[in-house]
């Protein structure tokens, strides 16, 4: 796979639910301003933050520009994309975003299962799926799909997660690296320089 920069790269997708804003902030803070890959962030109920818009909230925590993902736009390196509230977010084979209002999956829309499944199809082994705190089971099946295509799976240590259910569900289904939030930030930041 090649990203728009022309260099081989990966796509990182991070999903979180309850307790997710703080957790996402801590992970994104670790990424340098010259991060060479796109980062997709999916937070359930992100419309529950009126007045303090999530892009601004995360943008303050993070050296990378934070934007809402738009249908048909190509994924670009070094940008944090937010899944819009109320829509499923998918990645097409040509590495552009797509949206759908199909029914909820795992009781949520956007669903990490939908995003991760599409990422597994589009990126194969170049996909990186990350599951953080959350009190449902969304993302477990999607993370399994990413692993099945040879991608990398990282799950927040349930014992430190504000809501452990989502990490626990993911670990029941998929083999993954288990790290605390600080460790996830370090791992993602170091990944571009690590041998493939």
């Amino acid at each position: 796979m090649e990203l728009s920069s022309g260099s081989p790269g990966r796509v990182v997708a991070i999903a979180a639910s309850s307790g997710g804003v703080a957790a996402l902030g801590e992970v994104l803070r670790a990424l340098p301003a010259d991060y060479p890959w796109p980062v997709i962030v999916l937070l359930h109920n992100s419309d529950a933050y009126p007045g303090s818009r999530l892009d601004q909230l995360l943008g303050r925590a993070c050296a990378l520009p934070v934007r809402e993902a738009e249908a048909r736009l190509p994924l670009a390196a070094g940008i944090v994309y937010l899944a819009p509230a109320g829509y499923h977010l998918l990645v097409e084979q040509d590495l552009r975003f797509a949206l759908s209002v199909d029914q909820k999956v795992a009781y949520v829309r956007p669903s990490a299962d939908v995003l991760f499944d599409s990422l597994a199809d589009a990126c194969g082994a170049a996909a990186v799926g990350v599951i953080l705190t959350g009190s449902n089971e969304d993302g477990a099946a999607g993370l399994t799909a990413i692993r099945a295509r040879g991608g990398l799976a990282i799950v927040q240590d349930p014992s430190e997660a504000q809501a452990p259910q989502m990490p626990e569900a993911a670990l029941r289904l998929a083999s993954a690296e288990v790290l605390d939030l600080a460790g996830i930030g370090v791992r993602l930041a170091a990944l571009p320089g690590a041998p493939a």
């Binding site: 499923h88 998918l90 990645v91 097409e92 084979q93 797509a98 759908s100 199909d102 939908v114 499944d117 599409s118 199809d121 589009a122």
Partner: peptide, 9 residues
């Protein structure tokens, strides 16, 4: 149709 959501359906 856009392939990713069609495939999912």
């Amino acid at each position: 149709y856009a392939p990713a959501s069609f495939k999912r359906r």
